[in-house]
């Protein structure tokens, strides 16, 4: 296995992960942001999160709780919002995985990212990629969600900086801009569901 340059301790030697010695290693392909990536010699029980970060260097997918509770590793798998830490990487071999980098221009992703910056919804930034994926998924499915629905839909994404107020404000501004006549940045129905447009994104 080629060792990513940023990481100077290999996964196999991590004493916190004794189970990494159990079971054979497998090689397979993953479809990430429209590109095909080769995974070579990964432990068969590795999560999608660990393979994305440690084997493929996709660092926008953040690693915090590894229990499916914080949402910082959120990606779309075949267009569905999931926590990549609870997905077995080798079992995702035939799925389309979309990270924040691959959300594309068909949906609200660009407007969401701009609104997050404009409204101060990014502070330390650690939760931001997961939030952008989750918010893009929500607005593509439910463009007119009210604040209760927005808060409930984002209950699986934890932010310890903003208190969520600025994140909600950013989302509301995207919704308002969409309702304004003449706004062409994003209209539901004109783009694809995020994660289904595999021509977009570079895989990095």
């Amino acid at each position: 296995m080629s060792e990513p340059a940023y990481r100077n301790v290999s996964v196999d030697e991590d004493p916190a992960c004794p189970s990494h010695d159990a079971g054979p290693r497998v090689s397979y392909q993953l479809h990430i942001d429209g590109g095909v990536r080769e995974v070579a010699g990964a432990w068969f029980g590795e999560s999608l999160l660990r393979v994305l970060r440690d084997h493929l260097g996709v660092l926008s997918v953040k690693d915090a709780c590894e229990q499916g509770r914080c949402g910082s590793c959120s990606v779309l798998m075949d267009g569905r919002l999931v926590t990549s830490c609870t997905v077995l990487a080798a079992d995702a071999a035939d799925a389309q995985v979309t990270t924040v980098a691959g959300l594309g221009v068909g949906g609200p992703a660009r407007a969401v990212q701009a609104a997050f910056l404009a409204h101060g919804a990014v502070q330390c930034g650690f939760c931001t990629p997961g939030f952008v994926v989750a918010v893009t998924d929500l607005l593509a499915r439910r463009p007119d969600a009210d604040e209760d629905e927005i808060r409930e839909s984002l209950a699986g994404n934890i932010c310890r900086c903003t208190g969520y107020g600025r994140i909600i404000a950013a989302i509301r501004s995207v919704q308002e801009a969409r309702r304004r006549p003449g706004d062409t940045r994003w209209r539901p129905g004109t783009g694809q569901r995020p994660g289904t447009d595999q021509r977009q994104g570079t895989g990095r």
Binding site: G45, S47, E66, G68, L88
Partner: peptide, 11 residues
């Protein structure tokens, strides 16, 4: 995977 994958990770 919501139970098994985190349990694999922690051993």
């Amino acid at each position: 995977g919501t139970d098994l994958v985190p349990a694999l990770r922690t051993g």
